[in-house]
Design a protein around this nucleic acid. Structure first.
Length: 800
DNA sequence: CATTCGAGCTTTTTT
DNA sequence: AGCTCGAATG
């Protein structure tokens, strides 16, 4: 975590007066205390959980099924390590996958052992912890410790530039796909030099690895790292610097890893490297809940644990404390359709409870209406809205529910929607701050260069950009040089100069002013706030509100740097407080949560399992979708409702859909098939709904719709084949034309020493031929034949 | 240089 | 269908 308060104190042992002498672990005193009840937190654990907490030495794998008390084991384990004095707070490494999980763990540890946990500087996400390590030793991997963390948006903009520079057709090879590719490589721990040749060839006629290398070069120039780099560079750091590695191996006496099934290769390598020190690593996970394969998560990591860590203790947690018997039975039968599981059998002593209901509806509108009514009914029964969740496969499904709930006046919250910092106005504001904090941040500068509009357009930017690249210096630095020459039109030059002066002034205030005030000042003086105030559109007011919120939240941080770090790594859509609300979120976002009542809409072929998953990953994709379904079902404590619609609008057009194959995989004895609760004013609906139910009912016994499904699959193949043919043709057409080359575009022209002498004849693309009158560094004064005497940059001149 | 209009593309999931 | 990006126009 990037807890600002812990930034400075983590190396320093806590005040020694607070430390009791270390008791000998497992010694007489230890056992006596246990007897006396000092370890009260151990009470109430079942035998397996207790084993998992107490098996502190050596590698441990805890296979924790859904709802078996995984988080409790982890937090109690930390408490136990602290309470027995085996390690102090800053000697424990605890990694989670999401910020939410990290936050929760911190809170729960604090509840167990008190404020000592506040000082757990090494509890956080993989990304946050690697960043922390990376910042301390940044120079060892070619960065400065103030490096910027680029988000996806920045990453794609940068890749666009790389593609442009390489003269690659962006229509044919979109920056987005390259970014996926590079991410995938990074997730696997591959730097440009180690990309398998076959894969490198797959992008842009074999230039994939090359582009990757260029991109990395640009990142270093910008003093920036993308998400993937945080891990990859941190791994490289540890790998290439044994002394640094030793430092952290020694420091982390105990390591804990949450959601181990979701770790990808870099994370795995990173962990393994660190764990080779003291071997006290405890991984908790559930192979049945591995749902991040698309992001490079490798289930094999968990399946391989015993091989990787010989002598590992393996503990299974199979007693479920969350769900009723019917719900558990439903989940168990579904997941049994997957191969390659480690195999766990969840059980509960709980009553069977209500049967999960499967409801067919006509379309997504009726689905929303029906769920809305169901919720209102629950509400009347006194069920809290906080205990109700709607979990969707894809975020576009959310909108329908939002609309419905707004008309109903039903309070809801969307979790994991568009993030606060992804909003345009926030990104703009951040870009200003980044320019101030980090003059080398070209991407930020480019973003606000002409925002608000100040008459600096593409032409000016292009000029600046070309020159900067030729000289290999940051844009802002180049701008500072260019305003002294006559390359730019007077108007632009003046505007740019005053912008740079503004930045210098703001920069000089970093130390003097609290960052909140500074930000306010910047937004004011740059005219950015004005821009939105003048804007009469509906969103403008909200944007100003957001900016205010940004400034306000900045004040909680000790300095600008830690704020910027927080925002790029941690800040998520803050859950607005205020009254209980129904939660709407994706299934992915729901992992780790639980609710009394869960609605799972959209169980239709193509949507769930998602077509893309099937197309891209075949059987493995299907299994991952099934695990996702399993995650969804096991979120429910008491009531579970599944829905499928016969018609759904996808990409704007209505499509008739088939119930998800997963529905057929549920055990008939645990599930109740229902008609939509929603009464509808349209007579036609009831009839269609009935027909719909009919076809669903039959699917339990006859594989009727599976034929239809095969049909659909073959259609899919047909269409994707066509696409492939089209691409092939395109490729050939392009190949005939041959790649265009821009001469010397990427070759660094030495900026040292001028290649022109006084009196030399030169040519400038804008001012024409002329004679060199004087030289000052890379600025050259030229008497142009037509344009008169001008001062220009050397790099704009050719020998004439 | 800014605005407007049209084409094309997207829509899985996230640090 | 809605949006983003790019080209054409003022």
């Amino acid at each position: 975590m990037t807890d600002p308060s812990s930034r400075h104190d983590h190396d320093v042992p806590l005040d020694s007066s607070m430390e009791s002498p270390m008791p000998k672990p497992g010694g007489i005193a230890d056992r006596a205390r246990a007897r006396r009840g000092d370890f009260a937190y151990l009470d109430g654990l079942n035998p397996e959980q207790r084993r998992a907490v107490e098996a502190l030495e050596g590698p441990v794998l805890v296979l924790a099924g859904a709802g078996t008390g995984k988080t409790r084991v982890l937090t109690t384990r930390i408490a136990h390590i602290l309470a027995t004095g085996r390690a102090r707070a800053h000697e424990i490494l605890a990694v989670t996958f999401t910020n939410k999980a990290a936050r929760e763990m911190k809170e729960r540890v604090a509840a167990l052992v008190g404020p000592v946990a506040e000082g757990m500087p090494w509890l956080g996400t993989f990304h946050a912890i690697s960043t922390k390590i990376l910042r301390r030793h940044a120079e060892l991997v070619g960065l400065q410790s103030t490096f910027t963390i680029l988000d996806t948006d920045d990453q794609i903009r940068l890749l666009k530039q790389v593609l442009q520079a390489a003269n690659i057709d962006e229509k044919r090879w979109p920056a987005r796909s390259l970014s996926y590719q590079i991410d995938a490589w990074k997730n696997r721990g591959l730097d440009p030099a180690h990309v398998p040749p076959g894969e490198a060839a797959a992008f842009a006629n074999g230039r994939g690895a090359d582009l990757y290398a260029h991109y990395q070069e640009r990142l270093k120039t910008l003093n920036a790292a993308d998400f993937g780099d945080l891990l990859l560079e941190s791994l490289r750091l540890l790998r290439d610097n044994p002394d640094v590695l030793r430092l952290y191996q020694d420091r982390f006496r105990y390591m804990l890893v949450d959601e181990y099934q979701d770790t990808n290769s870099v994370q795995y390598l990173w962990l393994r490297l660190l764990a080779q020190g003291r071997h006290n690593v405890c991984c908790v996970g559930d192979d049945d809940q591995s749902i991040y394969g698309w992001r490079g998560a490798d289930v094999d990591n968990i399946l391989r644990f015993e091989t990787d860590f010989p002598g590992a203790t393996i503990i299974r947690l199979e007693r479920n404390y969350r769900s009723t018997g019917h719900i558990l039975g439903t989940a168990a039968r579904l997941i049994a359709h997957n191969d390659g599981r480690l195999g766990k059998t969840l059980f509960t002593d709980d009553a069977p409870g209500l049967k999960p209901a499967v409801t067919g509806v006509w379309d997504s509108e009726e689905e929303a209406r029906s769920i809305g009514e169901e919720i209102e009914q629950l509400q009347r029964q006194g069920e809290g809205l906080d205990e109700i969740a709607i979990l969707v496969r894809a975020s576009f499904q959310m909108r329908e529910f939002e609309e419905r709930f707004i008309t109903l006046g039903l309070p809801y919250r969307v979790i994991g929607g568009p993030r606060f910092y992804e909003r345009a106005e926030i990104r703009d504001a951040l870009a200003y701050l980044r320019c101030v904090a980090q003059p080398a941040d070209d991407l930020a500068f480019e973003r606000i260069f002409n925002v608000p509009k100040r008459g600096l357009g593409d032409a000016t930017l292009q000029l600046l950009y070309d020159a900067a690249r030729r000289e290999r210096i940051p844009l802002m630095q180049m701008a500072a040089i260019m305003v002294e020459t006559e390359e730019l039109k007077p108007k632009q030059r003046q505007t740019l100069r005053s912008l740079l002066e503004d930045f210098n002034r703001w920069r000089s205030l970093i130390e003097a002013k609290p960052q909140g005030e500074l930000a306010e000042m910047i937004l004011e003086e740059s005219g950015y706030t004005d821009m939105w105030q003048k804007d009469r559109t509906a969103e403008a007011a909200g944007r100003l509100e957001n900016l205010k919120e940004l400034v306000r939240s900045m004040e909680e941080f000790p300095d600008l740097g830690s704020f910027l770090e927080h925002i790029s790594l941690v800040m998520d859509a803050e859950n607005q407080a205020g009254g209980p609300r129904v939660s709407i979120m994706t299934l992915h976002a729901a992992k780790g949560l639980e609710f009394e009542t869960v609605f799972l809409p959209g169980w239709e072929e193509g949507l769930f399992p998602h077509q893309r998953s099937l197309d891209e990953s075949g059987r493995a994709g299907l299994e991952e979708e099934r695990r996702l379904a399993y995650v969804g079902i096991t979120r429910a404590k008491r009531r579970l409702h599944l829905y499928f619609a016969t018609n759904r609008r996808i990409h704007g057009l209505w499509q008739t859909t088939i119930p998800s194959r997963f529905l057929d995989e549920l055990p008939a004895e645990n599930v109740e098939v229902r008609e939509a609760a929603s009464g509808t004013a349209y007579g036609g609906y009831a009839q269609s709904r009935f027909a719909n139910m009919d076809s669903y009912g039959s699917s339990y016994s006859t594989p009727g719709w599976q034929r239809a499904q095969r049909h659909q699959e073959s259609k899919q193949r047909g269409s994707s084949g066509q696409t492939g043919g089209g691409q092939e043709a395109f490729k050939q057409k392009n190949a005939r034309r041959g790649p265009l080359q821009i001469e010397g575009e990427l070759v660094a022209k030495s900026s040292a020493g001028s290649s022109f002498a006084q009196g030399a004849r030169v040519f400038h693309s804008k001012f024409g031929p002329g004679t060199v009158a004087a030289i000052d560094g890379n600025k050259v004064t030229v008497d142009f034949d037509k344009a008169g005497r001008k001062m220009v940059l050397e790099s704009f001149l050719q020998a004439g």
